[in-house]
Design a protein around this nucleic acid. Structure first.
Length: 156
DNA sequence: GCCAACGTTGGC
DNA sequence: GCCAACGTTGGC
């Protein structure tokens, strides 16, 4: 895959928001239990890749800022932790099933770019985010779309 | 809170 | 291997 690559990562702000990431600086993106999303993280992400940070499930879903990939992929330790929310009793530390990358804060946009607003733009047609029934929490983004959204978010 | 879309599980 | 049942996601 060509580098750098660009991605969108969803999170429910009630559990982990852009403000949480800003505060922590860097965070292991644990708990992903979808094979397609895992494959993107495990196989395709590289340190430095750009991330669009998306809030789902809230009052107003949308893109709230930027982050970047801060580590290579490695096994998700929460899969082996019985106390963890996304514990997977069938996963084997000798043959890890779930992987993650660390994510680092880059910037929070001065305003949220609402999903409804983004949908209406002619220059963003085709984004996976808009696909009917799209539930993937980690998805690739075209560089062109990433740049348009970054500029929008910064208020230009 | 509703519900459509989707992924996973498990009986057969 | 099929497919119904179930759980989850996530917009509205």
């Amino acid at each position: 895959m060509a580098r750098p690559s660009f991605w969108l990562m969803k999170t429910e702000p009630a559990s982990f928001s852009i403000d949480d990431l800003a505060h922590r600086g860097r965070e292991p993106w644990d708990g992903v239990r979808n094979y397609q999303a895992r494959n993107f993280m495990r196989d395709d992400m590289r340190v430095g890749d750009g991330l669009l940070f998306y809030h789902s499930g809230g009052a107003e879903p949308g893109i709230v800022g930027l982050a970047r990939v801060a580590s290579k992929s490695y096994p998700d330790p929460t899969a082996f932790d019985p106390a963890a929310k996304h514990y997977d009793p069938d996963s084997d530390p000798e043959q890890p099933r779930w992987f993650l990358v660390d994510v680092a804060f880059v910037e929070k946009f001065p305003r949220l770019l609402a999903l409804a607003e983004l949908r209406r733009r002619d220059d963003l047609v085709g984004m996976a985010l808009f696909a009917r029934g799209q539930r993937l929490s980690v998805q690739p983004v075209l560089e062109r779309h990433f740049k348009i959204i970054r500029a929008l978010g910064r208020g230009s």
